[in-house]
């Protein structure tokens, strides 16, 4: 469901816009960046925030 929520937000982006998502380590952190890249988006930043939470910035090229 994490990817579903991300995808719904990505559909609202214009070219060049970015979306910042907070992902838990494990399946969401592995799945979301991999799948957005497969769908033609760019992952421009990945950073550890705290504990098992990571920030991923996705750009619509």
């Amino acid at each position: 469901m994490t990817f579903v929520k991300t995808k719904l937000k990505l559909e609202l982006l214009e070219e060049g816009d970015t979306l910042e998502v907070l992902l838990k380590a494990g399946e969401p952190l592995e799945n979301v960046p991999r799948t957005v890249i497969q769908q033609g988006f760019e992952v421009v930043e990945t950073a550890h925030v705290k504990d098992d939470v990571h920030r991923v910035v996705i750009k619509k090229p």
Partner: peptide, 11 residues
């Protein structure tokens, strides 16, 4: 609906 939305999200 989990399967449906997950599958639709990956096109």
């Amino acid at each position: 609906f989990t399967l449906a939305s997950g599958a639709a999200a990956v096109n």
